[in-house]
Design a protein around this nucleic acid. Structure first.
Length: 201
DNA sequence: TCGCTGATCATCT
DNA sequence: GATGATCAGCGAA
């Protein structure tokens, strides 16, 4: 797959991953009374993607990524933040989609209580660590089956999808040039952090 | 609005 | 012992 990254050629597995990333836009993450509409994601291709945690094969941290799809892969970042991915593809492929931003659709009071930071509504889940904070996602949620109703789960979007824009991934220092970040075009809740310096426009 | 920086630790080398 | 898929607060402009 590294060859695909460097040459821009894609095959079925990668196309499936990118389709999955796009289809997550507009889907909803639900926990308790909080509903979050996903507005920005990034695809990570797994064992051959140098920007992926799975690049060097399975470790205790990344084993969930190598497991069955529709599970949540949660990791701890920069000593203080939790970030969440949706595992894609069949067991063994280690493909995943990072949830970068969302819009709070319900449960605003719960979210504001959890956050404790004064932010405009559209900023509450703008950024991967803010998104997990809104839903109180932590390491305890690693491996959660997102298709099981009840606790934290994922609801597919209804009807036709939103207008989708595409660009380079954010904050990664390897393979930043591949345009595997997708977002809902024009949505105010999409992150605005500057792209990795190596990433072209 | 932009740019800088401190916080803080699991993971891997 | 270094690194990182980050955020929030601050000051400058």
């Amino acid at each position: 797959m590294l060859r695909m990254i460097t040459t821009g050629q894609t095959d079925g597995v990668l196309n499936d991953l990118l389709d999955e990333a796009r289809s997550l836009l507009g889907a909803r993450l639900v926990r308790d009374d909080v509903t979050l509409r996903i507005t920005e994601v990034e695809a990570y291709a797994g064992a051959d993607d140098p920007a992926s945690h799975a690049f060097r094969g399975p470790t205790p941290r990344t084993e969930v990524m190598f497991g069955p799809p529709a599970r949540l892969y949660v990791y701890f970042s920069y000593g203080m933040h939790w970030c969440a991915n949706v595992v894609c593809g069949p067991a063994g492929t280690a493909a995943a989609v990072l949830l970068r931003a969302g819009a709070v659709e319900s449960g605003m009071e719960t979210v504001r209580r959890r956050r404790g930071v004064r932010l405009a509504g559209r900023d509450l889940a703008r950024g991967p660590a803010r998104l997990t904070a809104c839903l109180a996602i932590s390491g305890d949620d690693n491996g959660t089956d997102l298709l099981r109703p009840g606790g934290l789960h994922l609801e597919p979007r209804e009807g036709s999808g939103p207008v989708i824009a595409q660009g380079p991934r954010v904050g990664v220092s390897h393979a930043a040039e591949v345009p595997w970040r997708f977002w809902v075009d024009g949505d105010p809740s999409v992150s605005v952090y500057r792209r990795s310096q190596r990433a072209p426009r």
